[in-house]
Amino acid sequence: MLEAWEYVINHPEKLAGWTLDHLQITFVAIVIAVILGVALGVYITGKGKEHIADIVLYIADIAMTTPSLALFGFLMLILSSIGLRAIGFLPAVIALIIYGQLPILRNTYTAIREVDPAMIEAGRAMGMTEKQVLFKVKLPLAVPVIMAGLRNAIVLIIGIAAIAAMIGAGGLGVPIWRGLRNARMDLIIVGGVSVSILALLVDALMSRVEQWVTPKGLKTR
């Protein structure tokens, strides 16, 4: 423990660099994962899309349960076969996006499906089009559950990003792997603890965001 602390004191620039790399990878992955997951989650709630929904959620389930190492390896294979860079930033971000999909997709889908039918009928009875019902009724009412999914996905992505160091993407996984290879406990602790702290900080930030985007009338007082 003490050695880990000494390491941080002596090499703050290294820790800062890894943290920045880590944030960069996860930030890009999170932004894309959220947009993709929410859009797809909303799309599969559409009329007559129950079959597509089943398939999409099933694939997301499989992706989530695939060991991350295997997924990275698999992605390297695919990317190199289509002539893209198989190591570094790109495969790392893609893998993280895939991991983030399940909690985002499932929560978005469930949240919208479980909006009280009486609310939807009230919207239609007022003369709202399907689109207006989606944006004025369903989505606002679904926000709390969607946000819970996003927070899950974000913490997950920050954690798994540590493994991305293995394929040369950098980040806080670097000291962990280095420590493992050279039996340097201090490095492992520096990396591991930093990832945890980062995840907690970002989650705290997201809880603020959640407060901010939840419609006022839905907040429990």
């Binding site: 009280d116 009486a118 609310m119 009230a122 919207g123 009875a125 007022m126 004025k136 009724v137 606002p140 009412l141 419609p215 006022k216 009338g217 839905l218």
Partner: peptide
């Protein structure tokens, strides 16, 4: 169109 009180939009 008026329905029982539950029909108000809670987020508005």
């Amino acid at each position: 169109y008026a329905i029982q009180e539950i029909g108000l939009f809670p987020h508005m």
